[in-house]
Amino acid sequence: MPSPSATRRTVGTVGRHAFLLGAVAIMILPVLWALAASFKTPGGIFDSNPLPSPATLDNYRVATRDFPVWRLLINTIVMAAGVTLLQLLIAVPAAYALVRFPPRAHRVLVALIVITLLVPPQSLIIPLFLTISHLGWRNTFPGLILPQLYGTGLAVILLRDHIRAVPSTVLGAAVLDGARPGEVLRLVLLPLLRPALGAVAILLFITAWNEYLWPSLAAPDIDHATIQPGLGAFLTQEGPEYGPLLAGSMLATLPIVAVYLLASRRVTDAFMHSGLR
């Protein structure tokens, strides 16, 4: 017969798993409903049957034929990839330089970076909008991408933690061999940071992909819009096209799901085991 302590541990484990399963169900049920509804006929979207009966691909045909879904997806991929790449190009040397600062200066700089993360992005909308309007960057990729670099501080903080976890003996050996700081970063740190870079890149990509407010202001033209505000094209004068709208929403999630599935192991390893293993 199991002891009372073993019984309590078993009950606690079952309770935690039940709570997690309930949380997953709450998060995934709306997605499953939208997926099922995207295969329904216009008259069956709001019926009581959660499954499409009969199932149809008409919503996807309308979304890809009558609306510029593919153009919106291409614009979003270019924007998200550009934001991710530029933020990493800035964050990697910044995080390396931050680690090399003396302790007192290091703490001050980290505090300043954290303060930038606490500033609501919405408070920067007006100056950024006026800047790209003055430069003539509305409805352009520079206008979409460059203002979003204000969020680089998060990548700097995450990469700093991974760089600090690298043993100092590894860096010291490279310096004794005559490597300059740039060579240490390029030849020693970057190979060690590949899992962390992959994880941070995915977080940055997903954040940029889901951005709504800035793209809706910087690129209001449907030919230059991204997928999040561009889904508003399904709200026609005759009323919302719910079926094609749901189909477009499902198509918008495919790149993110594919990226995460291909790199989920790397993301887990990077955040569960920072630095060297």
Rank of each mutant, 00 (worst) to 15 (best):
H134L: 13
R9N: 06
H106M: 07
A37V: 08
A23V: 07
P50V: 11
L231A: 01
G153E: 08
W214L: 05
H17V: 15
A225V: 06
Y242E: 04
T253E: 04
L128G: 02
L217S: 07
R186Y: 09
V92H: 01
L276T: 15
P2S: 13
G15N: 02
L251C: 07
F39T: 02
L176F: 01
N49W: 06
A155L: 12
S264I: 09
E211W: 01
V257I: 15
L154C: 08
L57D: 07
Q148M: 15
L246I: 06
V170E: 04
I163N: 00
A218I: 04
P127Y: 10
A97L: 09
T236Y: 04
L98Y: 00
I126Y: 14
L88V: 10
L158D: 00
G143F: 01
M250V: 13
G82A: 11
A219K: 00
L187Q: 09
I145F: 07
V92R: 00
L245A: 02
L245Q: 01
A111T: 04
S216V: 05
I163Y: 03
S264W: 10
L176Y: 01
A196T: 12
A155H: 02
Y242L: 14
I132L: 09
M1W: 11
G172W: 11
T152H: 06
I74N: 07
V24H: 02
T236E: 13
E183F: 06
L144W: 04
P244V: 03
P42L: 09
A105I: 02
I202S: 01
P142T: 07
V259W: 14
V156L: 06
A34W: 05
A94H: 02
M27S: 11
L124R: 12
L251I: 13
H224A: 07
W137Y: 13
R107H: 04
A18F: 05
S168T: 14
P30I: 11
K40R: 15
V259K: 11
